[in-house]
Design a protein around this nucleic acid. Structure first.
Lengths: 179, 179
DNA sequence: CCGTGCATGTAAGGTGTTACATGATTGA
DNA sequence: TCAATCATGTAACACCTTACATGCACGG
């Protein structure tokens, strides 16, 4: 049972989902391709942590809708209390910034602006998520507390926005350094 | 030639270093173990991107001090201009936060405080790096510009501090949510 | 007509971690 | 005395990405 497996259980603790949907929704937390997820779902099913129903579709391909079982829920709850690995980030851009003196100012500025617009796009998508969470929540977001179903979504969107704001602040600061 | 290989060239563009030192200094940008670095250095040497001298030591084990060659520098400069992969972060804690409603408030608070003290420790280490950079720089840091040797270090420490401050801000905000 | 989305799966290859191997010095 | 640091390397395993495979519907 690796972290990705528990991540899949985490998502399934809120909604029943297909492998395809799980693949899409786990990206912000733990990027993974479908080729990694489908075999893990088969394993989780073997262990009895999840079960699925076949749903036949005529226009689209048939699908398997997975849901969490009782013993899957127990495994998930145990995992939450266990020691948590520190986050790991790998950023190719940081390596390039380290030796940015090897290129001229104009080239460095071009790279920075490209990265900045990447962060701007990310921020836009986070704001959309924020609106979606607001729409799906019954209470105003500030009143949500730990046992509300949208609590996790809410606090994680907040985390993502704070992070991308820090990145954008750094870009702004960097631009003044490259003038 | 993968990203880690270029990362090693990036570090070597500033100083000649042993594999062991490269392993230590690349951690903040691109975490890697020595078992991954030593074989890559051998490959880079085969390709002529780096060269090394044996340095015999009596008290400590002998070492190989690697440095960047002319053609290694050219390869590095070309890579900088190439499209840059987006950063990838995998954070087990975020997955747990997503379904944090499965545990009680006290347990959630315990986990949050643990993560907060992890960030506090990180911030301390970044402040130490900041002081080290300040000590090694000839000019005041605010006056450094792109072609100064400490520029990369300076702007990356700044980036790391902004990031960890955002994380600590989120922890503070979360604590009020769990009261 | 061509690409994208939906939906599942396998195979091969590249990347990253853990463990094995050695051995002197230094500090707790 | 036990662990950590320095210093290199290999082997086995786990994890992740890319490519192969199929096929219908829909929009540009």
């Amino acid at each position: 049972m690796n972290t990705l497996s528990y991540g899949l259980l985490s998502l399934l603790s809120k909604d029943s989902r297909t492998g395809y949907e799980l693949m899409q929704h786990i990206q912000p937390f733990w990027p993974a391709k479908h080729s990694q997820i489908y075999p893990l779902l088969a394993l989780l099913e073997q262990k009895g942590y999840v079960e699925f129903v076949h749903v036949l579709q005529s226009d689209k391909p048939d699908k398997k809708v997975y849901s969490l079982t009782e013993i899957g829920l127990k495994a998930l709850q145990e995992w939450i209390g266990l020691p948590t690995d520190p986050p790991v980030t790998r950023d190719e851009f940081a390596l390039k910034v380290y030796c940015i003196g090897l290129v001229n100012k104009a080239e460095a500025m071009r790279m920075l602006l490209e990265r900045e617009s990447y962060y701007i796009g990310k921020k836009e998508r986070y704001m959309e998520s924020y609106e979606r969470v607001k729409g799906q929540s019954e209470k105003p977001l500030e009143e949500l507390e730990i046992h509300d179903p949208m609590f996790g979504n809410y606090v994680l969107v907040r985390k993502a926005v704070l992070k991308v704001d820090a990145d954008l602040l750094w870009c702004e600061w960097m631009k003044s350094k490259l003038k």
